[in-house]
């Protein structure tokens, strides 16, 4: 079963199960989950490369959350197996101390303050010892819920108010704080910007960037393409429980489209010269477009220069994730 072949025309760029290179932070093989007759996840093979920020994309109901829950051992797969930080099977929970997760929205007790909720969570963290208040306050500070100065939202004493009165954004921030209570090797964030205002979204991006810089592997599930494109190094696209494609973001975008856009002083002369050189150029919006084909960019420029056409600008037009996503999901239909 190789799910990457389910979408014809896309490239399999997953460096999967290559013996060299660091072991992936998480690995799924043949993962399948059914609820009664409903197939939620079907035959997913996925690697989360160590140190990567992997964006998991897919429409609502495509199986993102179920896949994450199986990766974390919250749900038993119907078939297939999961390896998390090198642990697998009954040993899987042994990996969890080094995994921070915000899955299916933040879960906290309404009658406790945000801080007390975090203190309770901290008490269950195997990696914490001694005074729990310091790491709790640090985590609150990191997500902007700490009392006083720097909080972007919910300033004042947000952390000491009861969770019952929190806005959706504050709840989301507290959930993020719980996932970041201790330094993690893998952080799994399921729709982390859900309910956040633009400032909050920016804060989350900042946190993910920090995690990435620290070498932490991040799995970010989202249905917001721009968010994934902005922060992720890798992407995995799910559609109706199947993995359509996964791989490095830049490679996927380049692989999907490689056309060159040229700005010249004489488009008609450029067209003639390029046709003569064997490319299939055409005009669009006053520019000359050369689809990826027999000519490499230096050859294109050389042909134009030889024909005496002045070249003002040559750029490779990169596809947006949105186009890639639309293309992938349409092809599947």
């Amino acid at each position: 079963m190789t799910p990457t072949t389910t979408a014809p025309g896309t490239l399999d760029l997953v460096p999967s199960s290559e013996p060299d290179g660091p072991a992936p932070a998480a690995r799924a093989r043949g993962l399948r989950k059914t609820f009664g007759r409903v197939v939620a996840v079907d035959g997913v093979d996925l690697d989360l490369p160590s140190g990567a920020v992997v964006g998991m994309l897919g429409p609502n109901g495509s199986g993102k959350t179920t896949l994450i829950r199986m990766l974390l051992g919250l749900t038993r797969p119907t078939a297939g197996h999961v390896e998390l930080l090198g642990r697998t099977g009954a040993d899987l929970p042994a990996a969890l101390p080094d995994v921070g997760a915000l899955v299916e929205g933040p879960g906290f007790h309404p009658f406790l303050s945000g801080r007390d909720n975090l203190l309770r969570a901290a008490a269950t963290e195997p990696r914490l010892d001694g005074d729990l208040r310091a790491p709790v306050d640090a985590a609150l500070e990191r997500v902007g819920l700490a009392g006083g100065a720097s909080g972007a939202t919910g300033g004042g004493d947000a952390a000491r108010r009861r969770y019952r009165g929190y806005s959706l954004g504050m709840k989301q921030r507290l959930g993020l704080a719980a996932a970041l209570l201790v330094p993690r090797r893998l952080v799994v964030l399921d729709e982390p910007t859900n309910g956040l205002d633009p400032a909050g979204t920016r804060d989350v991006r900042g946190v993910i960037a920090e995690l990435h810089d620290a070498g932490t592997t991040v799995l970010l599930s989202s249905h917001l393409l721009a968010e994934v494109e902005a922060v992720c190094t890798h992407v995995a696209v799910l559609q109706r429980g199947s993995l359509l494609v996964s791989g490095e973001l830049t490679a996927l975008l380049d692989g999907g489209s490689g056309e060159l856009v040229l700005t010249t002083d004489d488009p008609d002369a450029a067209l003639g010269a390029l046709r003569a050189a064997g490319a299939g150029p055409y005009l669009r919006d006053g520019g000359v477009v050369v689809p990826a084909g027999p000519l490499e960019p230096p050859e294109v420029v050389a042909a134009l220069v030889a024909a005496g056409v002045g070249v003002w600008e040559v750029r490779r037009r990169r596809a947006h994730l949105e186009e890639l996503f639309a293309r992938l999901t349409e092809e599947d239909e």
């Binding site: 919250l74 929970p93 995994v99 309404p110 269950t124 195997p126 719980a178």
Partner: peptide, 14 residues
């Protein structure tokens, strides 16, 4: 119901 059981299992509390 409050979603905190998930947190306990993920911590993990055995």
């Amino acid at each position: 119901a409050t979603g905190t059981l998930r947190g306990l299992l993920l911590a993990p509390v055995g």
